[in-house]
Design a protein around this nucleic acid. Structure first.
Length: 260
DNA sequence: AGTATGACCTGATGGC
DNA sequence: TGCCATCAGGTCATAC
């Protein structure tokens, strides 16, 4: 569910509330999110910082790192009662952070050092330079949407923002990455930056179940131009937005504005 | 290296 | 109301 803007929204709230707090106790309910490895005893450990790394929430402790991926249906919520989907709870003085995840596609990783799963990811889309973006994109032949979804290429873009970005940049989702002209890739980089920053400023997109740590929805779904708009007229040219399957994902685009 | 497919999970929705 | 198929913000493993 959550992509870069949603995770960024969550992380900003978590950082404010958790920085400096000490874990008093933690509870874990066995589920797929732990992949068979529960975090060790962390009582007495202090939260140094909370950062985003791609789609991961990275909680930097004074001893080790807790990395949380929210998958499709993961939520981090303060002070809500335990329910059947609660996978973990961390108790701090005066506040309790719970992880809920219906589908269990999320993941909790603990490691003494920055976890390998995070280190192997590509650069952040809001930090990569335009030149590096162009060079990296040109070194792959695969379809551009598939590449945008590949977290080792850039980290944090998912299905919504891939579709929205390609529409804004007027690029067909199945165009071969290596064959995109440099000026088109530069345009994509620019649109990527503005799209993600706009989405963050709206608190992310809420389609069905995304909510921030306060249980509130984002509003960027109101600004979507193609995602979830199949059959509706394109805002540029009026022709109907198409929906197909590409890279195993529902893909929305304007067949007139985004030519192959 | 690429891509296509299925798997992993559960719930919501729509057709019959 | 019930049953079935399909779809959903994401990875991951396996097979061509």
């Amino acid at each position: 569910m959550p992509e870069l803007p949603e995770v960024e929204t969550i992380v900003r709230a978590l950082a404010v509330q958790l920085r400096g707090l000490v874990i008093e106790s933690a509870q874990y309910w066995p589920s797929r999110v732990f992949r068979g490895v529960m975090p060790p005893e962390l009582d007495g450990t202090q939260v140094k910082e909370v950062r985003r790394h791609g789609k991961y929430v990275l909680v930097e402790l004074d001893r080790g790192y807790l990395a949380i991926h929210l998958g499709m249906t993961g939520k981090l919520l303060f002070d809500v009662p335990h329910n059947q989907y609660t996978r973990a709870q961390w108790h701090f003085k005066g506040i309790r952070l719970g992880l809920e995840d219906i589908r269990q596609f999320g993941r909790v990783i603990w490691a003494e050092q920055m976890p390998e799963e995070l280190r192997k990811l590509g650069p952040d889309p809001l930090e990569i330079s335009v030149d590096e973006f162009v060079i990296r994109a040109r070194s792959h032949r695969t379809g551009i949407k598939s590449l945008l979804l590949t977290q080792t290429f850039v980290r944090g873009i998912g299905n919504i923002y891939a579709d929205e970005l390609l529409f804004r940049a007027k690029v067909h989702p199945n165009r071969s990455s290596a064959e995109l002209p440099k000026h088109v890739l530069r345009r994509m980089w620019k649109e990527m930056t503005t799209l993600l920053e706009e989405a963050i400023s709206h608190g992310g997109s809420s389609i069905s179940d995304y909510v921030n740590t306060a249980g509130r929805q984002g509003s960027f779904q109101k600004e979507h131009r193609v995602y979830g708009k199949a059959g509706e007229p394109c805002g540029n040219c009026g022709s109907p937005i198409q929906k197909t399957v590409l890279a195993q994902r529902g893909t929305h685009y304007c067949p007139v504005c985004q030519k192959l």
